[in-house]
Amino acid sequence: MTIVRDRVATTLHALPGKRRINPILVVVVAGAIIVALTYTLPAFRTYQLATVGAYFCVTAGLTVLTGLNGQLSLGHGALMATGAYTLALWQNKFNMLIPGVIVAILVTTAVGAIIGLAAARLRGPYLAGLTLAVAVVVPSISSTFDGTFNSDQGLPVALNPPPESILVEQWQAWVCWIAALVTVLALAYLTRGRFGRDMRAVRDDETAAKLAGISVARTQVLAFVVSAACAGLGGALFAVLSQSVSPGAFPLTLSLFLLMAIVIGGLGRLVGALIGALLLVALPAIAQEIGQSAGSQRLEGNLALTFFGVVLVVVMIAAPGGLTSIRLRRTKTTRTRNELKQKGR
């Protein structure tokens, strides 16, 4: 049994290996670009860049869960809140950032494991319902246990300022993008290996996966846990970015936005997750500009949601596979054309 599976594995592995390049190379290049950007961009853009990095952690994890494993989560905003509040409570007590981020990831992973265990027993709309409930419950928890979480006002996050020579925004961008690139690297390797194949197999046909000796429940729980860890990291980064946490930062709409972003970007692809993260920062900003130029500040508060919806509809009509699929189709057609040419010879 195991021998058969290994053989299948090697043949499967050979296929994508040809057209994909080493993720380390991509990450190193991206890191260089980020460093260059932090030295050229004005402060507010650098802050937005940092926010993209923090979102990227979350969308990357979510796209693995939803795109590769087929589990729909509407509760990732709540997992981010878990990470953010953990970091805030840790920082206000100990003020040590790196252990704090690790603790935030661990706590969120634990919470993710609990939700994942329940989620593995549910399918489709029931799973969405469960995760939705998790997202909705955040403000209630923070106001019920207001002694710890301080209700709607939230908690401040104690942070040591970066060295004098570095701008705060620059430092924030570095912290966020180091975390994002490490996350993406880990996810890239994880999804290429056996775990990635297991996830896809479970997504495509649970019965077939079971027949092939894959533990469906274990794969689903693991996928949820991995994705929760990413969300926890993202949440912790948000706490660092805004130096405060409050339930208003993690509303239900955030969870919906996250899902919309990865669908627009292209499900199951890390590049799609990057596009999604960019959109999460860019679209509300654009909506605000429009609201301002239209002369009504009251529009700003409401326009972003509409804007996201319209973009989702347009992208789904024009490119059902998301923005990344647009280029993919073109490369496919050129490839088939080349193949035809070769055959013609």
Binding site: V29, I33, V271, I275, A282
Partner: peptide
């Protein structure tokens, strides 16, 4: 594809600058 995405990031950043 990756390169083009990064190029877009740079471009967007350049515009906003």
């Amino acid at each position: 594809r990756t390169a083009s995405v990064l190029a877009v990031v740079l471009l967007a950043a350049g515009c906003s600058n």
